[in-house]
């Protein structure tokens, strides 16, 4: 597993402080992050691949400072967003998966081979040449996942990946997240998604308020919500 560290990380959007002095070391295989809307959890995970640069403090992945080595870090860290519609950037399913690989300067043959493998692994083979917008919501999220994992990142960060999905598709994505050999960091409101995870962190008003095994963390989160 990769080692991700947050060292006294704070962040403000203008006047509003969203993260305050976060110190974390993330080394477990599967980590869940929960918290209310606006608690800062989305900002926190965006720092792992440099989508947001902290106002102060440092974030590192495998010893690389994200602020200075964002490019290298992004090759290690794949990112899944809530709305797959905004993550699919190419017109057809196959082109979208190949997009990630094309940015890596691989040979055409290698791109084709890995794209085909990913299409099969995520059950999208029969839709390879279809326009991506004709896929169902669940299939779109599968495509988003396929397009990120085809590049074989060491870490997968997912920001509420199942919020827009129905129960069946949410379960499908959940199973995939559980079965992955990579380190997985999932932000979610759906507790079922992080059941059996190694560690769950609760964020409230930009601070870590609970951190431990899922049962304990979720208990304290429920108490917080009550």
């Amino acid at each position: 597993m990769s080692a991700i560290t947050f060292d006294r990380v704070s962040h403000s959007f203008g006047e509003r402080q969203v993260l305050r002095g976060i110190d974390l070391s993330l080394t477990e295989h599967r980590i869940g992050i929960v918290g209310a809307n606006g608690s800062g959890k989305s900002t926190l995970v965006r720092m792992i691949n440099g989508l947001v640069a902290p106002s102060s403090g440092t974030v590192t992945v495998d010893g690389l400072d994200v602020a200075k080595k964002a490019r290298d870090v992004r090759r290690l860290v794949g990112f899944i967003f809530t709305n797959p519609d905004n993550q699919i950037v190419m017109p057809t399913v196959q082109e979208d998966i190949a997009f990630t690989l094309r940015r890596r300067g691989l040979s055409a043959a290698e791109i084709a081979e890995r794209t085909t493998a990913a299409l099969h692994r995520f059950g999208l083979a029969e839709h390879a040449d279809h326009p991506a917008h004709l896929l169902s919501g669940g299939q779109k999220q599968l495509l988003a996942l396929a397009a990120v994992l085809v590049a074989e990142p060491q870490v997968l960060v997912a920001d509420e990946p199942t919020t827009l999905l129905d129960a069946r598709n949410a379960r499908r994505i959940g199973e995939l997240l559980h079965s992955m050999s990579q380190q997985v960091i999932v932000v979610t409101h759906q507790f079922a998604l992080i059941e059996g995870f190694d560690r769950v962190i609760v964020i409230e008003h930009g601070e870590v308020v609970a951190d431990g095994v899922p049962e304990d963390s979720l208990d304290s989160y429920r108490a917080l919500l009550a």
Partner: peptide, 19 residues
């Protein structure tokens, strides 16, 4: 220069907002 910072609410709401 820092696109994600322009709108604090967007990072959390982009998904829900555009559905």
């Amino acid at each position: 220069a820092e696109p994600a910072n322009a709108k604090p609410a967007n990072a959390e709401n982009a998904g829900q907002g555009s559905r």
